[in-house]
Computed example of a mutant assay.
Amino acid sequence: MSRSNKVVVPDCKAALNQMKYEIAAELGLFASHGVSTGADTEFADELGGVSGGTRIQWREVTSRDVGSIGGSITQRLVAQAEKVLNGYS
């Protein structure tokens, strides 16, 4: 099965990963380093140390929470695009 998600701007991957972990932290979700599976865990140690959250593996995050993270990413990207289109940087 092939993925339909094509990376249009590869340089944005790190920024999107950072945004994903920031939003997960805001929701109280934290990924922990386990066995390296190639998953996006580069910010996991930083976020795991934030108080008030629970350290969990990404595979333990519910579909609802993953959807909340994705929805929040979309909202932030749209807001940033609107600012740029309206002349605010």
Rank of each mutant, 00 (worst) to 15 (best):
M1L: 02
M1P: 08
M1G: 15
S2E: 08
R3E: 11
S4F: 09
S4G: 08
N5P: 03
V7D: 02
V7W: 01
V8N: 05
V9W: 03
D11Y: 06
A15I: 13
A15P: 02
N17H: 08
K20Y: 04
K20L: 09
A25I: 02
E26M: 09
E26N: 01
E26K: 14
G28I: 11
A31L: 07
A31I: 02
A31R: 12
S32L: 10
S32Y: 10
S32T: 14
G34R: 13
S36E: 12
S36R: 03
S36G: 04
S36N: 14
T37M: 01
T37A: 03
G38H: 09
E42T: 05
E46W: 11
E46S: 03
E46G: 02
L47K: 11
G48T: 07
G48A: 14
G49I: 01
G49N: 12
V50P: 00
G52H: 00
T54S: 13
T54E: 13
Q57Y: 01
W58V: 10
R59M: 07
R59H: 05
E60M: 01
E60W: 07
E60A: 14
V61N: 06
V61L: 13
S63K: 03
R64L: 08
R64D: 15
R64A: 15
R64S: 15
R64C: 01
D65P: 02
D65L: 07
D65R: 10
S68N: 14
G70P: 00
G70N: 12
G70F: 13
G71D: 05
G71Y: 02
S72P: 02
T74R: 13
T74I: 13
L77Y: 02
A79I: 00
A79M: 11
Q80C: 06
Q80Y: 01
E82Y: 06
K83G: 10
K83V: 01
V84T: 05
N86H: 10
G87R: 10
Y88R: 12
